[in-house]
Simulated scan of single mutants.
Amino acid sequence: MATQRIFVSGRVQGVGYRDWVVRTAQGLGLTGYVRNLKDGRVEIFAAGEDASLQTLVKECREGSPLARVDHVENFPADEERGHKGFTKRFTA
């Protein structure tokens, strides 16, 4: 099992982006969470198979229908394993 931390910037808050991420990640069989950051970005922590993680990163570049994604940054994350399901969290 691999993990990724993904940061998405653009118009990604207040447009259903987090709900879209939850549905997309669940459909890919990933666990983890998504949350808004105070700086306007969205943070995603996801764990699962490499191919599913790569698909999530690719899909995040498109985003939800009302979103405008300007930049996606992702890197491996070695912490926070053991999530049950994929959830939406409060702003950090």
Rank of each mutant, 00 (worst) to 15 (best):
M1N: 05
A2Q: 13
A2P: 00
Q4C: 04
Q4E: 09
R5F: 00
R5M: 02
R5D: 00
I6G: 03
F7T: 08
V8A: 04
S9R: 13
V12W: 06
V12H: 08
V12G: 07
Q13Y: 07
Q13W: 11
Q13M: 13
Q13S: 13
G14K: 03
G14S: 05
V15H: 06
V15F: 12
Y17S: 01
Y17F: 15
R18E: 07
D19H: 10
D19G: 12
W20S: 12
V21H: 12
V21G: 09
V22N: 06
V22H: 10
T24Q: 15
T24V: 13
T24D: 12
A25F: 03
A25L: 04
A25N: 07
Q26A: 11
Q26N: 14
L28F: 12
L28G: 03
G29P: 11
G29I: 11
G32V: 01
Y33R: 10
V34F: 02
V34A: 10
R35H: 02
L37E: 15
L37P: 05
L37S: 11
K38G: 07
D39S: 09
G40D: 12
G40H: 12
R41W: 10
E43A: 13
I44T: 03
I44L: 06
I44M: 07
I44W: 04
F45P: 00
F45Q: 14
F45M: 13
A46Q: 11
A46H: 07
A47V: 09
A47D: 09
G48E: 01
E49V: 00
E49A: 12
D50W: 09
A51M: 00
S52K: 02
S52F: 00
L53F: 11
T55H: 05
L56K: 13
L56E: 12
V57P: 04
E59D: 14
E59C: 04
C60A: 15
R61L: 06
E62G: 11
P65A: 05
P65D: 03
L66I: 08
L66V: 10
A67M: 10
R68E: 10
R68Y: 04
R68W: 03
R68I: 08
V72E: 14
V72D: 12
V72M: 14
N74L: 10
F75Q: 15
F75S: 15
P76I: 05
P76N: 02
A77N: 09
A77Y: 05
A77H: 09
D78W: 04
E79N: 10
E79G: 04
E80W: 10
R81K: 08
G82S: 01
H83M: 02
K84L: 03
G85S: 04
G85Q: 01
F86M: 09
F86S: 11
T87A: 03
T87M: 02
T87V: 07
T87E: 03
K88C: 09
R89I: 00
